[in-house]
Write a protein that binds this DNA or RNA. Structure first.
Length: 273
DNA sequence: CACGAGACCTGTTCGC
DNA sequence: TGCGAACAGGTCTCGT
């Protein structure tokens, strides 16, 4: 499900609430149900339970695709991977078949980690850098500039798409927004990173920021039945639009495979340099 | 260092 | 209709 815009949306719902979901800030974790132990990456499930019970959630943030919940004395990190979701369930709402970890809060509220494919992971650590310390820059942050991207691209000799998906290069891009950004920047996904000129890097920089910001404004992209809310899928230019006309030139969008990931390009607009 | 394959999982869709 | 293959928003590990 989630890339940066979807995680940002989940983060905002947890922090600020939404019509069917009260905010989670300030609530105390009274107990935890762990229905799939491997969802807990660290520490072991019994230690996790013992440490987390009684702690209050004081802040909620995001780094790359990680949700970061500050507790009284530890930090809870959640990565939703492919099919995860994290949201508050009210007493009248039924349990679901994919509830992997359920945090029981005050007032019969539950913070539910739902994850059909079981790829998602949760950490409870003293220092969040233990988990997110190796991430690359935040693409919407101030330190990410056209020239910093150009320098980073020059420092590697890799195909653009796998490089943009590498979270230690830039944090937060996934398959959807990488395809969207490369198309908007008119760059072929197999282009080698150190062949870009400064103006190519600047176009890519702008395309990445634009795609992420526009998707956040639409509350993210909903492709499966799993994700509730966002509607950026209506505005996708190439992702899962194989055969549809390119919004720039009308050429049918093609699907190729790059680094074992389905990849969507316009063969006219995105020429290999 | 760069790259490809395989693993981890379950559910849906596609093709015959 | 049925059934296996292919595919899905992610990341890690291993071998070359």
């Amino acid at each position: 499900m989630p890339e940066l815009p979807e995680v940002e949306t989940v983060c905002r719902y947890l922090r600020e609430g939404r019509p069917d979901q009260p905010p989670v800030i300030g609530r105390t974790i009274r107990n935890v149900e762990i229905n799939w132990e491997r969802s807990i990456a660290f520490p072991d499930a019994d230690i996790f339970r013992r440490k987390i019970v009684g702690q209050k959630i004081s802040q909620i943030g995001r780094r790359g695709k990680y949700l970061i919940l500050k507790l009284d004395s530890d930090t809870l990190l959640v990565h939703l991977r492919m099919s995860g979701d994290l949201y508050v369930r009210q007493p009248h709402m039924p349990d679901g078949p994919y509830d992997r970890v359920v945090f029981l809060l005050d007032q019969e509220l539950k913070l539910v980690f739902e994850d059909s494919r079981k790829f998602g992971r949760i950490w409870l650590v003293d220092n969040p850098a233990e988990v997110v310390g190796n991430l690359g820059p935040e693409p919407l942050g101030e330190e990410f500039t056209p020239s910093s991207l150009y320098t980073l691209l020059q420092s590697r000799h890799r195909q653009l798409k796998p490089l943009l998906l590498d979270q230690s290069f830039i944090a937060g891009l996934g398959n959807i927004y990488t395809d969207e950004a490369l198309h908007a920047a008119r760059l072929h996904p197999l282009t080698l990173s150190d062949t870009l000129r400064p103006e190519d890097a600047e176009r890519l920089w702008a395309a990445i920021r634009q795609a992420l910001q526009a998707a956040i404004r639409r509350n993210g992209t909903s492709i499966d039945w799993i994700y509730r809310g966002g509607d950026y899928q209506k505005y996708l230019r190439v992702y899962q639009r194989t055969g549809d006309p390119c919004p720039n030139c009308g050429t049918p969008i093609e699907r190729i495979v790059v680094g074992q990931r389905g990849t969507h390009i316009c063969p006219t607009c995105q020429k290999l340099l």
